[in-house]
């Protein structure tokens, strides 16, 4: 299968690109995250799984800067960093692909790719040719070939094509880490495959990728490692080649917190 070759080819390094230590976050009286550790390396696809309400989206929003967290530390490329807003995250090279509400249907592919970051001159006149050119290059480098024209409105694209545009947009900005929150939730089989292939390609190009999904089949097809959250706590960190879907399902539904000893489960994890 494609996934296993991707595993071998990927330029995975050992030092994490992003490392979260002891993240806690509460919404009023709801403790959404408790002392959560998380890491992802460049060239690696890290899956983040857990049942509904496990805290996956919350963790992502803390990294993306849309939510402030209560306690914990964030390390990016080995340095401790502060993320106070979406702009801070974008400056670090962190891009998030949201499952919904990410594109403007009435705008075309190029316009969506550059949304909010249009190239312009001092008069704020749009520079269409370079934007169109770079969009075409990005699509080509990601082997997104199913979109007939990058000048067609996003409304005319299929779900998978739209997701491809959203992912391509995240990649175009020299991003180092791309986070995808349930990127295949609304897609059919063929389109899911298309997006997963794209996700693998990102990792092959040396980016760190975090993918959230409820679909273990998808996860086992793309991820190198799998972080499991349950009730806002770490309950497991697995290497995809050394685990089974059975084991991960058990962790999701009945996993015990792994942080009691302060050390996550995998040997590969640095501490």
């Amino acid at each position: 299968m494609g996934a296993s070759t991707a595993l071998l080819d990927s330029p995975v390094t050992d030092t994490p690109l992003l490392e979260l230590r002891g993240i806690s976050k509460s919404y009023g009286s709801v403790q959404a995250l408790t002392d959560v550790d998380f890491e992802v390396r460049a060239g690696e696809v890290m899956a983040l799984v857990g049942d509904n309400g496990a805290g996956k989206s919350t963790l992502i929003k803390c990294v993306a800067g849309t939510h402030a967290f209560d306690g914990g530390e964030i390390y990016f490329e080995g340095r401790q960093v502060e993320i106070h807003g979406p702009k801070d995250a974008a400056d670090l090279g962190i891009e998030v692909v949201y499952q919904d509400l990410a594109l403007c249907d009435n705008l075309d592919v190029v316009q969506n790719m550059y949304l909010g970051r249009e190239e312009h001159d001092w008069l704020h006149r749009l520079k269409e040719p370079p934007m169109e050119q770079r969009t075409a290059e990005t699509m080509k480098s990601l082997a997104v070939t199913t979109i007939r024209s990058i000048r067609q409105p996003v409304a005319t694209l299929s779900g998978g094509q739209r997701q491809s545009v959203a992912v391509a947009r995240a990649v175009m900005w020299n991003s180092k880490l791309v986070i995808l929150d349930e990127p295949t939730a609304a897609l059919g089989v063929a389109q899911t495959e298309q997006v997963l292939a794209l996700v693998r390609r990102l990792a092959e190009q040396g980016l760190a990728v975090v993918i959230i999904s409820h679909n273990l089949h998808d996860i086992f097809e793309t991820a190198h490692r799998i972080t499991v959250l349950r009730l806002g706590r770490n309950v497991g960190l697995y290497e995809r080649v050394k685990t089974t879907q059975q084991e991960v399902v058990e962790a999701i539904t009945a996993g015990k917190p792994t942080k009691v000893s302060g050390i996550p489960m995998t040997a590969a994890a640095p501490q």
Binding site: P86, K87, Y98, A102, L103, C104, N106, L115, G116, R117
Partner: peptide, 9 residues
């Protein structure tokens, strides 16, 4: 899509 616009900064 106002929400997409907002998220795009």
């Amino acid at each position: 899509n106002a929400e997409a616009a907002r998220r795009a900064g």
